[in-house]
Structure formats: structure tokens, C-alpha cells
Amino acid sequence: MGEIKTSSVLLINVESKKNDMLKKVKRHWQLYFVILLPLVYIIVFHYIPMYGVQIAFKNYVPTKGIFGSPWVGFKHFETFFKSYQFWRLIKNTVGISFYSLIAGFPVPIILALSLNAVRNQKFKKVVQMTTYAPHFISTVVMVSIIMQLLSPRTGLVNKLLGLVGIGPIDFMGEAKYFKSIYVWSGIWQSMGFNSIIYIAALASIDPSLHEAAIVDGASQLQRIWYIDIPGIMPTATIMLILSMGQIMNVGFEKIYLMQNPLNMSTSDVISTYVYRLGLVNAQYSFSAAVGLFNSVVNLILLVSVNQFARKFGETSLW
């Protein structure tokens, strides 16, 4: 008897929960209607390509379509791993990313700390406004400004170098300069905008900490070291995790524009290789395989860096 009773209570519970859910869904059916269009978009333009990535394991024949093409297993991956370009691409991709990360990560933090310490508010505003501005320049314009300024014949940089008796140097024509030009122009363009988030973090630090430190006779530098920097550490950690997860994800747009036959040995990265082989040479399956390899490595990197941060620090993405 007792047993039957409890199970029927359970049943009622399950029933009522189900009813609850149905009621909620019914009452708010309009919300489902509202999100339908974005959901369809996400499924069509993000999940169908994920399903279509199976062409990486097939020999894509346009007339047969994605599903009709014959399977070839890991053939394309093997070809890629064994090709002479493999190590060059990995070296360039990771090299450019790490260079960007190591050189570019501290700059916005230093800029934010420095701006935060300025007492003249007007001066601070002017510097902020101007350093944000380059962020809005398009990649095409940015690269053409770089090429104009670095031109060996008429460029400003070579003119300046000429004053101290150096050059002229053909910056874009020599492979060894590529990475530095890419990274430092990127820093020039984005340091101001990337500092916004740190300036916000600094503004949210409790001012009484600074007041107490001043009363205790702490110098400006000491306050930066012991109050400001610890205060923005959580933000910095998150930003670092995010950029570590992007290590294999060097932006296509700028590199592609800066590439020329002379600097190919240091400028060819995975994304430009995928574009060239896939869309220019129409080797769909092979380049899809290269792209998939890149996405998987990215995913693993992001998850493991986050795991690491969660274990050893108190901040993580999820």
C-alpha cells in the first residue's frame, strides 16, 4: 500500500512538473515565435557548415554534392601533415600570434595605468580620444597607409631613417620584417581601444584604498603596484585566456593584404593557405581539412587554457 502511495505521489509530481513546463511554454509562446528567426539563422549558417565539414573526410565532387561524395577518411589530413608547408604554416601562425600576444598584451594595460595616473583631465581625454581613433580605420586603409609610409622611395619612415643615414629599406619586400610590421601596426591601431576595458576596471577600484594609501605615505608608483595592478588582474586574466584561445586564429584580412611573393615565407598562415587552396584553386576537401584541423586545435586550446585558469586562479570564462 505504502509503496503505491509514494509512487503515485511521485507520478503526480512528474506530471505537475510537466504541466508546469507546458504551461510556461504555452503562456510565453510568443517568445518562441520571436526567437524563431535568429535560431533558424544560427542553424542554417553555423550548424549546417559544421555538418558540411564532413567534406574534410571525403573527396568532394561538385556534381555529387557534399553527401554523395565518396569517403576517404583521414587522407587529406595525412597529406597536410606530411606536406613541406605544414611546419612553415604552423611556425608562422603560432609565431605571429605569440609575437602579437607578448608584445600587444601589456601595452593597453600600461596605457590604462598611465592614463589613470594623469591628474589633468583634459589632457587625459585628448590622449584617450586620439588613441581610440585608429581602431575605426578599415583593414584595407590601414594596410595601404602602412605601405605608403614604408615605401622605399617616397615613404615617411625611410625619409626619417635617411636623416640618420640608414636605408632606404624595402620593408614590405623583405620577409624578415613582416612579423614586426604586422604586430606593431596592430598595436598602433588597437592599443587605445583595448585599453578601454582596463580603464573601466581601474575606475571601479574603491577610491578609499587609494586614500588610505596616501595617508600611509605611499608614493604614486607604490599605489599603482599594490592597488591598481591587483585591481585589474581579474580583467587581465580573462583577456589573456581569450587571446590564448585565439593563438591559432590569426586574422585573415590584414595578413592577406600584406602578403606578396617576396615575404611569403614568413607571411603564409593557415587561414590564407585555406583561402588560396580552397577558394582560388578549388581544392575544397583538402582545404576544409586544414580548416577543420585549425578549428579543433583552437577549441582544445581555449578549453584547456580555461581549465588551467580555473584550477590555478579564481577567474575563468566558465
Binding site: M21, K24, V25, R27, H28, L31, I35, L39, I42, I43, V44, F45, H46, Y47, I48, P49, M50, Y51, G52, V53, I55, I66, S271, V274, Y275, G278, L279, Y284, S287, A288, G291, L292, N294, S295, V296, N298, L299, L302, V303
Partner: peptide, 28 residues
Amino acid sequence: SFYGRNLIMGIFTFTMLFSGGLIPTYLL
């Protein structure tokens, strides 16, 4: 009160972590 919002949010955010890549998108 939107039932299933975590599921849909998950479907959305997963696309930020992983994507089919250039070629499958182009073919689509």
C-alpha cells in the same frame, strides 16, 4: 520565464567556440 533559454543560449554560444570553417560556409 523563457523555458529552455539555457539550451538555446548554449546552441548560440557554441558557435563562438567552434565553426565549420570557410569552405563549408562558402559551399552552403
